[in-house]
Design a protein around this nucleic acid. Structure first.
Lengths: 130, 130
DNA sequence: GTGAGTGGTCACAAATCTTGACCAGCACCA
DNA sequence: TGGTGCTGGTCAAGATTTGTGACCACTCAC
């Protein structure tokens, strides 16, 4: 089918969708949310972050933080202390991302009950139809 | 480890994160964006949507639309015409979701070049370090 | 010296996404 | 009259992403 290479489909489209899939990722959103909750200038330790996000595996946290760091949204600071502690903090770019991300998180929180009701109704209708 | 069930970690947390992973999903965002671009009241045909989103497979489009329909964010209307055509349109809930989603999409679009530059810098630094 | 916390990495299993074929019916063109 | 394409999907299989649990070296408290 070769995917209908319309004149409309500009190459930016793929780049935007790729970036969107990172930025809108479940764990990214939760991490940015956790980091944004911290007072500005203060970072968050690795395991502290893991505790706050809740339900994330170490591997996924490491991986997501690396991506965020690569994209310049979080800054990673290693303190060469006795147990080498690592601090993660949002950069300016990260804080600017936090604005739409928090808006999405707020929407999600606000509409949670309604969506659960919709799902129940949908599944109920399916059950009756059968 | 049993995941440190802090007093801070309420059970809503999982529900929010689950919903966030749907709502913030790459394809969901792109579909809502495409649907929102349509004049209010007008739906979008299946293949029309597929063309507009670009790069999505039929299966993924079907699956995402079903989820969105179940959550009450899009309405599916089947016209029993000669080639049975199907229309998808955002509901009120879907339009309200579109607000934060579009904000995220706009952020993504605006910061695309900067993020690509950050990535190049990060990867370059890695290359030099080696 | 046993157990826990520091910040990870590695390998493997499970879930998810993509690819491409197929379906039935009709329109268009030669 | 037959070949091709469009309608809106479904199905199976392969590729990719995610989650699970173990392990690492080190230090502190008990």
């Amino acid at each position: 089918m070769t995917d209908t290479p319309h004149p409309h489909a500009d190459p930016d489209c793929r780049a935007v969708s790729e970036l969107l899939s990172r930025v809108g990722d479940k764990w990214t959103v939760l991490i940015v949310k956790a980091l944004e909750a911290k007072p500005r200038g203060r970072g968050c330790r690795f395991n502290e972050l893991k505790r706050e996000v809740g339900g994330i595996s170490q591997q996924m946290l490491t991986r997501t933080l690396r991506t965020l760091e690569r994209d310049g949204m979080v800054a990673r600071t290693v303190h060469h202390t006795v147990p080498p502690s690592v601090e993660y903090a949002l950069t300016d770019l990260g804080h600017s991302l936090a604005v739409p991300v928090m808006a999405l998180a707020d929407w999600t929180f606000a509409h949670l009950p309604q969506i659960h009701a919709n799902r129940a109704a949908y599944d109920g209708a399916l059950g009756e139809a059968a």
